[in-house]
Amino acid sequence: MTRERVLYLMGGISAIWLVRNLYVMLLALPDEVEQGAIYRILFFHVPSWFTCFTGFFLAAVASGLYLKTKNSLWDTLAVASVEVGVAFTLVGLATGSIWARIIWGIWWTWDARLTWALITCLVYMGYLMLRGAFDDPTSRAKNAAVLCIFAFTSVVITFKAIDWWRTQHPGAVLSIRTGGGRIDPAMEQMIYQNWPALMLLAAVLVAIRMRQETMQRELEALRRRTHAF
């Protein structure tokens, strides 16, 4: 099976999975007692954050491996993961904001978790900006890898913010962190089912971006070779 077909297949499975999840969310699961219908946005909000954190973790590991091996494949994986991670960060911020508008009556509050989420987004946008500022691919890959490792600290702080500070953002609800009792099992199950579907979508996007990045690298090399003569 060609690479394209595998990607189409993964994309198709992800789409079907997401549609099936939407059906369950909207038609099978009842409204939440206190929050009403809006709680369903959490089925995208929480998995989006898990997906972007996974992307940033992958990028940090790939950056470390690039610095160790100098293999450009790792740099390609890092930039693709960060780009997709930033997209999911924006989804997480947007869904969180919509939920906050309905539940808290405000779009945004300068609470530790929200602030750190925004900082993480800015740090990784800075990473993408830094890449754009370099002409030489080797310097670009090296410096971006260093920044990517530094940037991961903001992911850790964002994740732990609800434990370290008293936040308006709700505390941990998933039973793997609380031992259970904070969320209905059927609703928690839905979060776990939507996460792999979004992860599959993210994997397809990362693979596409990696191919584009490889092609761009080849084009840059060709252009440099042409200018050399």
């Binding site: 900082i119 800015l122 740090v123 800075g126 900006m129 830094l130 500022a133 370099f134 310097s139 410096n143 260093v146 920044l147 530094f150 940037a151 903001s154």
Partner: peptide, 20 residues
């Protein structure tokens, strides 16, 4: 050190360091 060889050094450095 990361941004020393950039043309937009003066712009890039504050953009990167303040969030960090």
């Amino acid at each position: 050190a990361l941004t020393v060889n950039l043309r937009l050094r003066e712009l890039m450095l504050p953009t990167l360091i303040y969030p960090m």
